[in-house]
């Protein structure tokens, strides 16, 4: 059960505080290091209370609540470890599911359960994948709850099933696929050690330790956005900056790429939802 330790720390004003302190310290000689340090300080400050806990709690309520035309909860949803097993399920996703005969990531599976158990239409099940002020996302809340259920558990990603192997290999091809007006691929920014865009550090996803640190900390509460953002949201924004067209929500391409990233981070101890800039 997530703790609520945020009584007097509204995220917004803390975000503003952080922005100010980053700006002023940016004037110092070693600006690039300072920005990273400030985030680390902020993380420490909130060590016992990440705003993401509010999303986790709401997600748990949504998981247990009878909803949809069938008035069913999601408690019988099979995330791969059997109906109703949430503990550690995320740490083994994406994976092959026999009932749908395909590899699914958490959000595809969640969509499947909301349709098959609760009777939602596809349109209803993919509504508001990303929240904004005044328009919260049920999906982000559910994903927060379910990833938190794997906190402290090691990623154990299988590529044994031919469909899993196929998803991994396709994801790898997508990672290296250069195209568009700027010739970018994911690898353009994420395949060399110690690189930055402006002052933003970029993880080298070909380096196991980097890949693990990155993957195990999504979803995350984004201080700059005041929202919990999922891996899918991160990938969407990468594709936007890559000058690629927009990927469909919960599409197989996203699952394949997620499979490649998850496998690259295999063995990492999950620590999400985390806290990020």
């Amino acid at each position: 059960m997530p703790r609520l330790a945020l009584k007097s720390l509204p995220g917004l004003s803390l975000g503003a505080l952080l922005a100010v302190s980053v700006l002023s310290s940016a004037q110092a000689q070693n600006a690039n290091q300072s920005a990273t340090d400030e985030i680390a300080k902020y993380r420490q400050m909130l060590a016992d209370g990440n705003p993401a806990e509010l999303w986790e709690m709401r997600g748990q309520e949504l998981w247990q609540k009878k909803l949809g035309p069938n008035q069913q909860s999601l408690e019988q949803c099979d995330l791969g470890k059997g109906p109703g097993v949430t503990k550690g399920a995320y740490a083994e996703l994406p994976r092959y599911f026999k009932d749908t005969n395909k590899v699914m990531d958490l959000e595809q599976r969640l969509m499947h359960c909301r349709m098959s158990l609760q009777g939602l239409t596809r349109e209803q099940a993919v509504k508001t994948p990303f929240g904004s002020a005044g328009n919260p996302s049920d999906i982000e809340a559910l994903v927060s709850f379910l990833t938190a259920e794997s906190r402290g558990i090691k990623l154990a990603i299988s590529t044994k099933h031919p469909a899993e192997k196929q998803a991994y290999e396709i994801g790898k091809k997508i990672f290296y696929y250069r195209a568009g007006s700027h010739d970018f691929s994911c690898a353009s920014c994420h395949s060399v050690e110690g690189q930055r865009i402006r002052m933003q550090d970029l993880p080298n996803l070909n380096n196991k330790a980097n890949a693990q640190a990155a993957y195990s900390t999504w979803p995350a509460y984004r201080v700059s956005q005041g929202e919990v953002r999922t891996m899918q949201h991160r990938l969407n924004d990468c594709f936007r900056q890559q000058r690629f067209p927009a990927p469909d929500y919960a599409s197989d391409s996203i699952t394949a790429l997620t499979m490649f990233l998850a496998k690259s981070a295999d063995g990492a101890v999950m620590n999400a939802p985390a806290l990020k800039r």
Binding site: Q166, E169, I170, K172, K173, I174, Y177, G180, S181, F239, R240, R243, F244, P245, A246, P247, D248, S251, D252, S253, I254, A256
Partner: peptide
């Protein structure tokens, strides 16, 4: 796999603004 990846991306991405 390269061909499979391309087919998948063709199905899953949509033109948006100048990113076609």
């Amino acid at each position: 796999y390269a061909k499979a990846a391309l087919e998948m991306m063709k199905a899953d991405f949509k033109s948006k603004g100048p990113a076609t």
